[in-house]
């Protein structure tokens, strides 16, 4: 009798946790996409919560400090790290993406303080939604600068080549 009570109690907790996980996952799922994938999806991607990654185009960064509106474009980079490594590492891939005019681009709008790490050839990971004009409204910016990442060879060394 006691045993069944305990088992029932355990099952109840289990059910509650499963419910919490499933419902919260549905409520806050963000789809990871690259620029190419967003472009390919087109109108389907509009309004969905997305996590979009790409290379920041340095000369497109504009900041209006009166309204705290930040705009910039990002260029397509692969979302697959193994592929990035195969192409010569993150720094190289980002730099190629920014300088390659054939890549697809997405414009990004973000309202808020300008992040410290935002600069050309940074990898941006943006959370937000795409509007019907194809502009991405980011709620959150995560930036990775390849110079912060370990490169086997120092910059000075490359200059010596």
């Amino acid at each position: 009798m006691q045993r069944t009570k305990f088992i029932l109690g355990g099952l109840l907790i289990l059910a509650a946790v499963v419910y919490l996980i499933v419902s919260s996952t549905q409520a806050s799922a963000e789809y990871f996409m690259t620029v190419d994938e967003v472009k390919a999806k087109g109108a389907q991607a509009v309004g969905q919560s997305l996590r979009l990654s790409g290379a920041v185009m340095g000369d497109t960064i504009k900041y209006d400090s009166a309204t705290l509106t930040l705009t910039f474009d990002i260029a397509h980079v692969s979302g697959d790290n193994a592929e990035i490594e195969a192409q010569g590492g993150l720094a190289k891939v980002l730099s190629e993406a920014v300088n390659d005019p054939t890549r697809q681009h997405v414009s990004v709008v973000y309202i808020g303080p300008k992040p410290d790490l935002l600069r050309g050839e940074a990898q941006a990971i943006l959370t937000g939604k795409l509007d019907s004009d194809g502009v991405f409204h980011a709620d959150e910016l995560l930036l990775k600068c390849p110079t912060k990442y370990k490169q086997a060879v120092p910059d000075q060394a490359e200059a010596n080549k």
Partner: peptide, 28 residues
């Protein structure tokens, strides 16, 4: 683990952000 799991099963990478954790853990 969700991004890995979702990619494995649906081919689509899906992540969950802070709202997921806040919502799911608050009652606990």
């Amino acid at each position: 683990m969700f991004p890995l799991v979702s990619e494995l099963f649906t081919g689509q990478k899906v992540t969950v952000g802070p709202p997921f954790y806040e919502r799911a853990t608050a009652p606990i």
